[in-house]
Design a protein around this nucleic acid. Sequence first.
DNA 1: TAGTTATTGCAAATCGTTTGCAGTAACAGG
DNA 2: CCTGTTACTGCAAACGATTTGCAATAACTA
Lengths: 147, 147
Amino acid sequence: MTTLLQKADRQLRSQGGRMTSQRRIILEALDCLNCHPTAEEVYDTVKLRDQSINLSTVYRTLRWLEQEGLISARRFAEDGRQDRFDPMLPSEHYHFLCTECKEVIEFDHPAIESICSSFEQNSRAAVQSVSFVLYGLCPNCQSRRKN
Amino acid sequence: MTTLLQKADRQLRSQGGRMTSQRRIILEALDCLNCHPTAEEVYDTVKLRDQSINLSTVYRTLRWLEQEGLISARRFAEDGRQDRFDPMLPSEHYHFLCTECKEVIEFDHPAIESICSSFEQNSRAAVQSVSFVLYGLCPNCQSRRKN
DNA sequence: TAGTTATTGCAAATCGTTTGCAGTAACAGG
DNA sequence: CCTGTTACTGCAAACGATTTGCAATAACTA
């Protein structure tokens, strides 16, 4: 499996970009943070390795990765105003967000496709992308609540 | 069919609130703006009737209506960072947003329910709410593009 | 009609994110 | 290796939507 670091490196090479120490640290952080971190969370992780790294560098790197199609940014309604960054998986997937601990669970379901096409037929609109997000309590937070 | 103005009035009466001229204007605006306006759009409409009304009053009224469960606020990913306000319909519904003209089309589909319950069973998470948003081009913008 | 207090307008604060700029450091070519 | 070009950085200030504190105002109640 190719890491983000590797993909980004390839991308940079092909367009005269530079692999800086900051970018490397950020990419490595993204590769091991296998969840859906906010920019702030990436920043905190990255700072453990390089105190002097700046939040705006984190943002610039994340936005660059987004433009290159290597990650995607999404904002979950029940999660304040911040974006979360999601490594672009090869296959379409949807999200569940735990409203308590903010854990994200990914899932897929064959019916989603067909809902889109039936909507297209009824409305004559052309669907370009889909956001399907479930909110609720993850198993952990459920049992934590029962106590 | 009960208007927002009527519902809000009832709500106010039952909790010692006051029906101010500003609130009346805002509520009437919401009742005839039958789309999914942003706060700014409500503000612009409202200003035609009362120059001196303030944006923060619009926000306060919208948030109050939201708390009372009379409207709901949602933020669509492909529509910047602003909220859109949606009169609470009696039945669950989902949204299509035209990425060009920002028109919102509402729809429903029986399969959505069952996707949720099948996710609940597989993950053991408890789903509390669902956001299903399609993005694309509405029929109008499609034909406009073809020219 | 007057008193109380919920609500307003205003201006300033907030929060996540973006941007301008001058300095720094990758990398290509010698 | 060394050096020049310029992509990238850190910083601080700007941003845009939304929220807030506060003193003034105006609904409603008695």
